[in-house]
């Protein structure tokens, strides 16, 4: 049973719809007592980092999130919040990974921000998250801040800079793109998380 973490800052419905398509049983909750019963957790996130951290504090999930022992998948902002901090309103995040998320720079280049649309994810090595997914496949991205390259990085994407688009540290997985909105390939990645991670 997959638990989807609801804290008012995620596109919960899309993730739930995608799991329905895969016929994967799941529930949505913001209570850690209930979420503790899940075999795996998905942590979606859309929007702004400070509000998301505030919302997590309000529902009392901040400390709990740092001590999850089951496979955990952070999506988009849900991945970025795993880092120390973000320059988005100078927000301290969960601190499971060392590094700071920064904003794409639209001033020094011709970059449009947000980075919006389908971009390629490069990955090397034998990661279960990418089983059956070729390197260079396209996934759907929507974000204005990006995560740095770190030792946990397992997938990268180029947009003005090369940034972390997928990561894994122990049981914590994260993807910057939206697998729930990335068509057939995105569904494959979610299936991999459910079945292989």
């Amino acid at each position: 049973m997959i638990g989807i973490i609801e804290y008012g800052a995620g596109n919960i419905r899309s993730v739930s719809n995608a799991l329905n398509r895969l016929s994967v049983q799941h529930f949505i909750s913001n209570e850690h007592r209930k979420l503790n019963k899940a075999d795996k957790l998905i942590f979606p996130g859309v929007g702004e980092a400070r509000s998301a951290m505030d919302a997590l504090t309000r529902v009392g999930l901040t400390d709990w999130l740092k001590e999850v022992s089951v496979p955990f998948l952070g999506i988009c902002l849900g991945m970025q919040l795993l880092f120390d901090r973000t320059t988005e309103r100078s927000t301290n995040c969960l601190g499971l990974l060392t590094g700071t998320n920064e904003r794409f720079n639209s001033k020094q280049s011709v970059l449009k921000v947000p980075h919006m649309g389908w971009n390629q994810v490069q990955h090397e090595g034998n990661y279960s998250l990418f089983a059956g997914i070729a390197t260079g496949e396209h996934f759907y991205f929507v974000h204005s801040y990006y995560a740095p390259l770190v030792s946990a990085t397992i997938g990268t994407t180029e947009y003005g800079v090369r940034f972390t688009s997928a990561l894994q540290q122990k049981n914590y997985y994260g993807v910057q793109f939206h697998p729930e909105k990335s068509g057939r390939i995105g569904l494959q990645l979610l299936k991999n998380f459910v079945e292989l991670c």
Binding site: N17, R21, H178, E180, K181, S182, G183, R184, G186
Partner: peptide, 8 residues
């Protein structure tokens, strides 16, 4: 649409 499709 949201239930049927996996694109934005």
């Amino acid at each position: 649409v949201a239930a049927a499709l996996q694109i934005p």
